[in-house]
Design a protein around this nucleic acid. Structure first.
Length: 638
RNA sequence: GCCCUUGUAGCUCAGCUGGUAGAGCAAUUGAUUUGUAAUCAAUAGGUCCGCGGUUCGAGUCCGUGCGGGGGCACCA
């Protein structure tokens, strides 16, 4: 005689045990059609789950997160069914739901081709049409292992072996086909609908371990309507249009080539963007009390041995042997060099906090498969700084770093920032009392920012806790950029000291911080965030002066010179092309302003402005233009 | 690093089952002098990623190296 409590507070009474489908149809016939899965006392269950006791029940449709996830989970099963029907002998492994879709990992010798994906999709549609009924059974562990071993499903057998003893082993049937699965699932394959698409095949290690064999992963997406599927595919297309590698080429910012994989060849325009960013940050940092330094890119092996990098980071370091057989490393980090600057000369407690910044170019031998445009390179420039301070100064300094970072992100158009706080890892140096102190200090700083933060337990650096600054871009993607780390180790290893009030030598605390992390990477993110349409002050070419015909070339040259003189980066386009052609060309290159001049402008000493992404024409006195846009062409100041 | 995939003109790409390369755009030259997203024509342009092999003959087939792309692992 279960009483069923619904989310709206209503209660339904049943004379005998009842399942989700029955509850849904009791509520309304439309819900019974749309119901996909339910939650019973906080646990997700199949609609067929029989409720015997009084329970709270929520029924989910495709409008709920739980509903769409179940659709995706079922689509993954149907994918596995289809693959096994088409390619007998293929082993199934795992097939979870992921953001926007699902994947399934298969063990099969022959690779799946793009063509196979289309065939599999057809088969999946067939299976949906067959509307196979879902059935859940709970099996004995040994029976289950035996069953899958007999079928030749050794991976599944392994999975069952690793399920804890106190957990049920549930087997889901869709018609005859079955799979080990925690569930829940839809009541039949027909419920999945046909709004799915297989996206790509990729290699993936069994259990995510690179020592294991590689499986074939098929990624797919699945939705509850054609509209949602189309919108998703459209979103992917839009993201591809923003790809910084594509835009970088089109905008003539940089290129890569074989001779130096993962290193950027910056073109004039890209380098100008790069320098614009640096000069903006340089000014910000100087105002915040940083002293800019610069340290060597090549340093003797012994320094890296002392700092611990040789041992901990050696596999990622480029090294160089001189003709007389000395071994140097090309710096993968700036910190040891910076500590050496600190070490030069005696430092007093009065010098602290001492903030040294460096736009340091570092090289890291990243695995070839990790390289990705500007976002993952082997040579990059860090907007790095190291703050030497006392333990008492940690919180205040962390707070000022955080404020600086947030200010800078805001200026660059990122307002949606999340912090990630990572505390002590298992393998660490330094005693717990010091960790207590630095964790507390860092946490206090985070709390004072009032920002949202997540805690990553045990993910800190081996020398101290850290904050990472994650920004969200225009299309909702998260990028980890800035970082702030408290280090009580490196200053000690490299013998940094200061003379304290009492005349004794003490080891300073060192804060590592980077604002964007890597300027190369950040520029990649910027390009994608803005689809190449950079803010005016950052754009490498801010305007192009276009004379309507040869007759106005002189005027165009004259005003371009005046525009350059007030600090706006501008060019004249004197090529033998018509106006339409030039507008199209420069618009595609994302030039913020096109300045058109013809008879009208010459006569009135004006320019006609056409802004990127607008077809409005604004006629403006040249003087006014120079005044207005020269201030806009400078970096923002707060 | 691993799996899959890919490499043809400055760019984007075509080139079926092997018979020594083609388009559009860009470039150059000429004509045109243009009022808000591609004016017309002509010309020039290639070690088909490198190396090796099969073959009478390789852009095409095979092996190998390097690079790119998608994932996985990695991101200290």
């Amino acid at each position: 005689m279960p009483n069923i409590k619904l989310p709206d507070g209503n209660q339904l009474s049943f004379s005998e045990a009842v399942n989700g489908t029955q509850i849904a149809s009791k509520i309304s016939s439309s819900l019974s059609k749309k119901a996909l899965v339910m939650e019973v006392n906080g646990e997700l269950k199949d609609l067929s789950f029989l409720i015997e006791k009084d329970s709270s029940v929520k029924i989910f449709t495709s409008q709920h997160h739980e509903g769409i996830e179940t659709i995706r989970h079922d689509t993954a099963h149907i994918l596995a069914m289809a693959v096994q029907e088409l390619f007998p002998g293929t082993q199934v492994t795992i097939g979870p739901v992921i953001e926007n879709g699902f994947y399934y990992d298969f063990a099969r010798k022959e690779p799946f081709t793009e063509n196979d994906l289309r065939k599999i999709e057809q088969k999946m549609i067939e299976i949906v049409d067959r509307d196979e009924i879902t059935k859940r059974e709970v099996w004995e562990r040994d029976k289950a292992i035996d069953h899958f071993k007999k079928k030749g499903e050794t991976y599944k057998a392994q999975l069952i072996e690793s399920i804890p003893n106190n957990e049920e082993i549930s087997i889901y049937f869709h018609g005859k086909w079955n799979d080990l699965c925690r569930g829940p699932h839809l009541s039949s394959t027909g419920k999945v609908g046909k709004y799915f698409k297989l996206m790509k095949v990729a290699g993936a290690y069994w259990r995510g371990d690179s020592n294991n064999e590689m499986l074939q992963r098929i990624y797919g997406t699945s939705w509850s309507s054609k509209k949602e599927l189309d919108e998703y595919l459209k979103r992917i297309e839009e993201a591809e249009k923003r790809d910084h590698r594509k835009l970088g080429k089109e905008m003539d910012l940089f290129h890569f080539r074989e001779e130096s994989p993962g290193s950027v060849f910056w073109h004039r325009k890209g380098w100008s963007l790069f320098q614009n960013l640096i000069s903006y940050m340089r000014e910000k940092q100087n105002l915040a009390g940083y002293q800019e330094i610069n340290t060597p890119e090549i340093l003797d092996r012994s320094l890296w041995e002392k700092s611990g990098h040789w041992e901990k980071f050696g596999a990622n370091m480029f090294t160089s042997t001189t003709p007389d057989d000395k071994v140097f490393a090309i710096k993968p980090m700036n910190c040891p060099g910076c500590v050496q600057v600190f070490n030069q000369g005696l430092k007093s407690y009065r010098d602290l906090p001492l903030k040294m910044s460096e736009f340091g170019k570092v090289h890291r031998y990243e695995p070839s498969g990790a390289l990705h445009g500007l976002l993952r390179v082997r040579a990059f420039t860090q907007d790095d700084a190291h703050i030497f301070c006392t333990e008492d100064q940690i919180t205040k300094e962390c707070l000022s770093v955080t404020n600086l970072i947030l200010e800078i992100y805001k200026d660059l158009g990122f307002e949606n920032i999340i912090l990630k706080y990572s505390d002590r890892p298992d393998t660490r140096v330094g005693d717990d009392a010091v960790w207590d102190k630095s964790e507390k200090a860092l946490l206090k700083a985070i709390k004072e920012t009032g920002l949202e933060y997540t805690i990553n337990k045990g993910e800190g650096a081996f020398y101290g806790p850290k904050i990472e600054f994650v920004l969200r871009d225009a299309i909702g993607r998260d990028w980890q950029c800035g970082t702030l780390q408290v280090d009580l180790n490196l200053p000690n290893r490299l013998g940094a000291t200061f003379i304290d009030k009492d005349g004794s030598k003490k080891v300073p605390v060192m804060l590592h911080r980077a604002l964007f992390g890597s300027l190369e990477r950040f520029i990649g993110i910027l390009i994608e965030h803005y689809s190449g349409k950079l803010p005016f002050w950052l754009a490498p070419i801010q305007s192009i002066v276009i004379p309507i015909s040869e007759d106005f070339d002189d005027y165009a040259k004259k005003i371009n010179k005046e525009i350059n003189n007030v600090g706006i980066s501008s060019e004249v386009d004197l090529k033998n092309h018509n106006l339409n052609y030039k507008i199209r060309e420069h618009s595609l290159k994302k030039i913020p302003l096109l300045l058109i001049c013809g008879k009208k402008e010459v006569d009135s000493n004006t320019v006609t402005i056409r802004r990127l992404d607008s077809n409005k024409q604004e006629n403006m006195e040249l003087k006014k233009f120079l005044k207005e846009f020269s201030s806009l062409s400078k970096p923002p100041r707060n």
